[in-house]
Design a protein around this nucleic acid. Structure first.
Length: 200
DNA sequence: CCCTGATTCGC
DNA sequence: GCGAATCAGG
């Protein structure tokens, strides 16, 4: 892949939006985050100014003491994870599987929800008591992450009241492809059997 | 461990 | 110019 005008433009846009290099790389496809970062630098827009952030002057570290130390007695066994082939993430396709979960953006964009719209937790619902027990059990082991600490690999199940200090996200390892850990997937995705014969 | 961006340097 | 490898940090 080469840096066509369009790709560079998208890069600039996303970088300006505050997207991370890796996110941009995913979006563009065919490039790694390193490539993105490299390009960003070459374009001279490394500093994410713009958002009224603090320019913080440019302390010129005149002395660039970068001695080329040849002595490397300690070989560092650094794993070099190669960039896996692009994955075509089939975002949510559970059409017939109603999800009983609070509305929390799955990821993407770092738009912090202004507020309170988190619907009630599915507790008094008709969820298998076992699943519920499972949940309350793991909530003890939850990582208790904050919104910013969430990644695509952490359970995004919110716990508590967003309006209070007593609010956090599960944070346990998610189940492949799902936004939640196993336990929370259990209560989030209902087999669709809400009410059997609720005569009206 | 997961993730960030920054830098270097052979290509 | 490009970007993998590496560095430095959270």
């Amino acid at each position: 892949m080469s840096w066509t005008d369009e790709r560079v433009e998208l890069l600039k846009k996303m970088w300006a939006e505050g997207q991370s290099a890796s996110q941009i790389a995913k979006e563009l496809g065919g490039v790694t985050r390193n490539a993105v970062i490299g390009k960003v630098h070459r374009l001279g827009l490394s500093n994410r100014t713009g958002s009224g952030a603090a320019p913080a002057a440019a302390a010129a570290p005149a002395k660039e003491a970068k001695p080329v130390k040849d002595a490397k007695p300690a070989p560092k066994p650094k794993p070099a994870p190669a960039a896996p082939a692009a994955e075509t993430a089939p975002r949510e396709e559970a059409a017939s599987v109603p999800e009983t979960r609070p509305a929390v953006s799955p990821a993407r964009k770092q738009i912090i929800p202004a507020g309170q719209p988190l619907p009630p937790q599915p507790s008094a619902n008709e969820i298998s008591p076992e699943a519920l027990a499972k949940v309350s059990e793991i909530e003890k082991k939850a990582k208790r992450l904050t919104l910013m600490e969430l990644t695509e690999r952490t359970c995004k199940w919110p716990v508590g009241d967003p309006a209070t200090e007593d609010f956090w996200f599960c944070g346990l390892p998610v189940q492949q492809g799902k936004p939640y850990c196993e336990a929370h997937v259990g209560v989030a995705f209902q087999p669709m059997s809400s009410r059997r014969d609720r005569r009206r």
